[in-house]
Design a protein around this nucleic acid. Structure first.
Lengths: 190, 190
DNA sequence: CTGAAAAGCTAACACCATTAGCCAGCGAGC
DNA sequence: GCTCGCTGGCTAATGGTGTTAGCTTTTCAG
């Protein structure tokens, strides 16, 4: 019997695929093993536990999200950058709902790899805010507000939380326009 | 052996307590039964399934949230109402994190009870927006943006997603001030 | 070619959700 | 006040899941 050639990275990617298919809360070792054509206990040669796999998935997804945001911000600034980054954020959540859900997991303080991934996202956001003239404590506040707005919208959209018939794209543009207005207002004062 | 005197409402309340204790994802029938001093299968006389219990909890929590928001809005208008409602929203999420997490579940279209609970929340939000002169489609956009911002902030705060040392209360005030500014700007135009 | 590390396997266990079927408490009505 | 029937709780059993232990076989270094 030839070997399957697994390693932690491949297993995490399979977990990402499963999570996107069935939803993050229904991610299960049985489904990951099935997708990899392997018996369930074999996974334990490459992961610590289900929770460990969830952490690995969070790192993978956070890294991907950071790359997507960074790519969107590249070569842009000001409102242009804000729109591109916000679009990239929403796109990632819609295209990879399971991965995105894994993203909300907070890194625990000693986890350098996870912290680095989260820092990648944060750096791009702070760069966008710098384009509005925001820095220091105020930039942290703005980054949190921005992330809260984007995360809340993405979650509610993906989770089907917008019941009313109003077009979601329009509401999204309303939100981003509002974010731009707030940041511009704050930036000018600084 | 005397009876325990359960009913669907009592079971849902126990589920709410468990969910606040251990977190919504770790809500389990075993823990609910233990809290009620009853064997696990006995719960099935009052619930349909674990998923059904999660729905019941969502209804309970959404109703409570609606009442909290409605109470906060009572007798206020404009920015005053916005601040009160936003504070009540954040408070509810912090005091009842498990219940709050249940809140994100979208009602399925045929579920009148759940829809009514969600409508209670929506009505209060729309009333606040009316105080800014917003109505119609624009009010729906604003309601979504407002909910996204509050939900995103609450989730990230409760989940421990704010890693930086900056005071979270200050960031929260920044967010609400921004919301007020956007709504005031939009309202004036109308 | 050989030996040892690593990868995948089977077997076993504990925990959970769910269903079937039993028995006891309790109220309606004679 | 007694009985009948309903209802609420129970035990037992099943299938699925995460986890560990221990075995076998592939694979690669020397």
């Amino acid at each position: 019997m030839p070997r399957a050639g697994l390693n932690p990275r491949v297993v995490a990617q399979a977990a990402a695929a499963v999570s996107d298919d069935v939803g993050f809360p229904r991610l299960t070792l049985a489904l990951v093993a099935e997708r990899l054509g392997v018996r369930l206990p074999s996974l334990y040669k490459h992961i610590d536990s289900l929770d460990g796999l969830r952490r690995d998935l969070a790192v993978l997804a956070t890294r991907e999200l950071g790359e997507a945001l960074g790519g969107a911000a590249l070569g842009r600034s000001g409102a242009d950058a804000l729109h591109a980054v916000a679009d990239a954020y929403r796109d990632y959540a819609r295209r990879h709902p399971g991965r995105y859900a894994a993203t909300v997991r907070a890194p625990d303080p000693g986890d350098a790899e996870h912290l680095a991934a989260a820092d990648g996202v944060l750096r791009t956001v702070l760069a966008v805010l710098a384009g509005y003239g925001l820095a220091g404590d105020e930039a942290v506040d703005a980054a949190r507000a921005l992330r809260a707005a984007l995360h809340g919208f993405a979650t509610l959209e993906v989770e089907g939380g917008f019941g009313l018939p109003r077009d979601v794209d329009r509401s999204y543009r309303f939100l981003v326009a509002g974010l731009d207005a707030v940041l511009a207002g704050r930036g000018r004062e600084a």
